[in-house]
């Protein structure tokens, strides 16, 4: 199928890899010719999702985090998956300022950030089995041709 491309990366749930993860996803999405803002949005969302896997999914134990990216024409889909402890109450977890770890000074804004920066965020999770966060964003929506801007 034309306009289709996919990639998967699997890496250890070490906080050092947060930067690697978001930069890898950003590099993969450049084929969609995104604006800097769109790249920054996706990087932030990926960073939030990966941080969640490390802190909440695996509670700082070292296991695998899998990121799967898909391009469907102008739609960019990124999935971040862990096989950690899962989320008991997804609705509560998505609520802004909700955090199960206030002692770690978590702001409770992870999902709020993902939702703010992506078009759609879907969370699938089962306690003791893990969590999958699927985020979608259409790239090139708000772009104006530079020739239409005053010089």
């Amino acid at each position: 199928m034309k306009g289709t491309n996919e990639m998967t990366i699997i890496f250890d749930s070490r906080s050092e890899n947060e930067g690697f993860a978001r930069v890898s996803v950003a590099a993969f999405m450049t084929q969609l010719n995104p604006t800097l803002e769109e790249v920054a949005d996706v990087k932030t969302a990926v960073s939030e999702a990966v941080t969640n896997c490390i802190i909440h999914g695996y509670e700082n134990e070292i296991h695998n985090i899998e990121i799967h990216c898909m391009v469907r024409d102008r739609l960019f889909i990124v999935e971040v998956k862990d096989t950690g402890k899962g989320i008991e109450d997804i609705e509560a977890a998505r609520r802004p300022l909700f955090t199960t770890k206030p002692d770690l000074e978590r702001a409770g804004m992870g999902f709020a950030f993902m939702e703010a920066f992506m078009d759609q965020v879907i969370v699938e999770s089962k306690p003791k089995e893990g969590t999958l966060v699927r985020m979608k964003k259409t790239i090139g929506k708000g772009r104006e041709l530079w020739t239409t801007q005053s010089l």
């Binding site: 920054a40 932030t44 770690l104 978590r106 702001a107 992870g110």
Partner: peptide
């Protein structure tokens, strides 16, 4: 040039 909600946590604290 990059900050996620972890940075917000630090500022809030």
């Amino acid at each position: 040039d990059f900050m996620d909600s972890s940075g917000i946590g630090v500022i809030m604290g």
